[in-house]
Simulated assay, not measured.
Amino acid sequence: MPEPHTDPLDRVRAAAAERGLDIEIRERPAAASLAEAAVLLGLQPTDIVKTLVVKRADDSYLFALIPGDLAISWPKLRTVVGVNKLRLPEPELALRATGYERGTIVPIGSTTDWPVYADASIVGRRIAMGAGAHGYSLFVDADDLIAAYGATVADISQPAEPR
Rank of each mutant, 00 (worst) to 15 (best):
E90Q: 13
A32T: 14
L34Y: 10
P91N: 12
L70W: 00
A154T: 06
E90T: 12
L21I: 03
L86S: 06
E36Q: 15
M1Q: 10
I72S: 00
R13I: 01
A142H: 08
I105E: 02
G150A: 10
E3K: 14
K85Y: 13
L138K: 01
R28I: 03
K50Y: 09
T111S: 12
G99F: 03
D113F: 00
A32C: 01
P89R: 04
F139W: 11
T98W: 03
P107S: 07
A38K: 12
K85S: 15
D58W: 13
V106P: 00
P8E: 02
Q158H: 00
T46P: 00
V80D: 04
K85P: 08
E18Q: 11
P4E: 00
V53S: 06
Y61S: 02
A151L: 03
R28Q: 12
S73C: 10
V54T: 04
D7I: 10
I108F: 03
L21R: 08
D10M: 11
G130W: 03
V54A: 06
I108S: 05
I23L: 12
L93E: 15
E18K: 03
L93M: 05
R102F: 00
S73Q: 05
I127G: 05
Y117V: 09
D155I: 08
W114A: 01
A160S: 13
G124W: 08
D141A: 13
L93C: 00
E27N: 07
G124P: 04
T152G: 01
I23T: 07
D58C: 10
W114L: 06
E161A: 15
P159F: 00
R126Y: 00
G130N: 01
D69F: 06
N84W: 12
D69R: 01
A142F: 07
G103N: 10
T111W: 02
P67R: 11
A120Q: 13
Y61C: 08
R26L: 12
I105W: 01
A14K: 09
W114I: 06
R163G: 12
D7F: 11
D155S: 14
A31D: 05
I23E: 02
Q158N: 00
E36C: 10
A94N: 06
A14I: 06
D144N: 11
R96T: 09
P8M: 03
S137E: 12
V153G: 09
S60H: 10
A37H: 06
A154Q: 10
P67N: 09
W74A: 08
T6V: 03
V81K: 09
I66V: 15
D155H: 13
G135W: 07
P8A: 05
A133I: 03
A94V: 03
L41K: 14
H5V: 09
D119F: 08
R163L: 12
V106H: 01
L43T: 12
G42A: 08
W74E: 13
K76C: 05
D10K: 15
A32R: 13
R28D: 00
D119M: 11
G109N: 01
L95F: 13
I146W: 09
